[in-house]
């Protein structure tokens, strides 16, 4: 309950500030961004994040899953190592290199974002599936489940919360990285912030920053809810018990 109060207050604050800044209309010689532009860039921002995230999930989950198969046991430590090191690489470095290699713009942004977003998804999928109790898998196989059934009925449901947690992390990081991508001309809310900083008008910066923050917070809580809904009840009970101990 109190959580929702905090969440709601912050959202009202950020959205309110956005509206306020838009309402100023003019600071000195600078015009503020019109409401239409703010909305358009917000949608653009979501588009960039959505596209990158969709590709990242589409590739990251299968890759993370395949890495857990026995046949891959010599490859997967390397893969997981790369995913871990990759995550320590700063986002700006990713964006910069992508811009340098692919040319500045939307395409480079989506490529950089999708590669970066894929890392936590691969890692969490791998960790989630590997953390399934071997006894549970053995029992499933011993009772006559086929490989596909073990995967769909046992491994994936049990790993699902961890996989979704990875998707959540990567989405939230992505909102921020997409803002940075505004610097290489990808559009989105980053463009507003960057413009504000470039012309040294803090009001303009805030006009872009506030909705970006709101977007990140909203997506985070939404995906938190999804995680909650898609966590099998039996696992929740298990967690609660562990907490109590």
């Amino acid at each position: 309950m109190r959580r929702y109060v905090i969440l709601f207050t912050l959202l009202v604050l950020f959205v309110g500030v956005t509206i306020w800044m838009t309402a100023i209309q003019q600071v000195g010689m600078f015009k503020m961004f019109p409401p239409g532009k703010v909305v358009r860039e917000t949608i653009k921002h979501l588009q960039i994040v959505g596209a990158a995230e969709a590709i990242a999930i589409g590739i990251g989950v299968p890759v993370g899953f395949i890495a857990t198969r026995r046949a891959m046991r010599f490859v997967s430590p390397v893969l997981v190592g790369i995913a871990n090191v990759g995550q320590t690489v700063p986002t700006l470095a990713f964006i910069g290199i992508a811009g340098a290699v692919l040319g500045m713009g939307y395409r480079a942004a989506v490529v950089a974002l999708f590669i970066y977003a894929m890392l936590p998804i691969i890692r969490n999928t791998y960790a989630g599936i590997n953390s399934v109790d071997p006894a549970v898998k053995e029992a499933a196989q011993g009772m006559g489940m086929s490989r596909a059934q073990v995967t769909w009925r046992v491994e994936l449901p049990l790993a699902r919360p961890v996989i979704i947690a990875g998707i959540r992390t990567s989405t939230v990081v992505n909102v921020g990285t997409a803002a940075v991508a505004g610097m290489i001309g990808a559009g989105g809310l980053g463009e507003l912030i960057v413009t504000g900083i470039a012309v040294r008008v803090t009001q303009l910066t805030v006009q872009g920053a506030a909705p970006t923050a709101a977007l990140a917070i909203i997506l985070d809580s939404l995906l938190g809810e999804v995680e909650n809904v898609l966590t099998p009840r039996g696992l929740k009970v298990m967690k609660e018990k562990q907490w109590q101990q």
Partner: peptide
């Protein structure tokens, strides 16, 4: 209770993108 609030608040702070936080702090 306080602990839960503090940690929750801090975790929301974490979700705010850095460029946005810079912008807000500048304001």
């Amino acid at each position: 209770r306080i602990a839960e609030m503090v940690i929750y608040f801090a975790s929301i702070m974490m979700t705010i993108p850095s460029l946005a936080l810079y912008g807000i702090l500048m304001g």
